[in-house]
């Protein structure tokens, strides 16, 4: 819950004003959905994703846009975890953080999910084929930026738990 509030506040007040050459806009708040525990029931996951999206929408004045992208993100997350993770081994370490899962797995996980989320988000926002070139540039650069920020956050905040 604390993580949710912090990520949304950072997104809305800090990252909303940050942009590189008006092309790259990071959406770090989706980290909240990425870091939900493995064992979470599907319905709760979708509900939380939907609410997260709606909260960010309220601040960005785009009702439904982020919510739709977050629901897609939750769906891709379920598929990805089903394919790559054996569920039995994770009773005591229930969260897919960088320190628990290792760099390679987390990097693939974060990249694929971010790409899906951003692709859907940018295309739904613009919704026109004629501007596809700019949309794609924005989508690619923003995704790189977001994944970069996620990795930094992972290194900064989730290492300590491992050492305890």
């Amino acid at each position: 819950m604390v993580r949710f509030v912090v990520l949304v506040l950072v997104q809305v007040f800090l990252l909303k004003n940050i942009t590189l050459y008006s092309l790259s806009i990071p959406y770090i708040y989706i980290l909240y959905i990425l870091l939900l525990p493995f064992e979470i029931p599907n319905i709760l996951l979708f509900l939380l994703a939907f609410l997260t999206g709606l909260t960010v929408d309220a601040f960005y004045d785009t009702p439904g846009l982020h919510a739709a992208a977050c629901v897609l993100l939750a769906f891709v997350r379920i598929l990805f975890i089903n394919i790559t993770v054996q569920k039995e081994g994770f009773d005591n370490e229930p969260e897919p953080t960088l320190s628990v899962m290792g760099f390679r797995w987390f990097f693939t996980y974060a990249s694929i999910l971010t790409l899906f989320h951003h692709f859907f988000l940018f295309n739904l926002e613009v919704f026109s084929i004629s501007e596809i070139q700019y949309t794609f540039t924005r989508f690619i650069i923003s995704s790189v930026f977001t994944v970069f920020l996620m990795l930094i956050t992972g290194l900064l905040f989730f290492r300590r738990k491992e050492r305890k």
Binding site: N42, I43, F46, L47, A49, F50, G53, L54, D57, A58, F59, D61, T62, P63, G64, L65, A67, A68, C70, V71, L72, A74, F75, I78, L79, L124
Partner: peptide, 30 residues
């Protein structure tokens, strides 16, 4: 998972579509 995805996605898109017409005042904005 897939059916839940469909339900929530349709919900989100309906909200988005409604807002797009811009005239209907919506609860979720600043």
């Amino acid at each position: 998972a897939f059916f839940l995805f469909l339900i929530f996605e349709v919900g989100a898109l309906v909200i988005y579509g409604k807002y797009n017409s811009f005239q209907k005042a919506s609860l979720i904005n600043s």
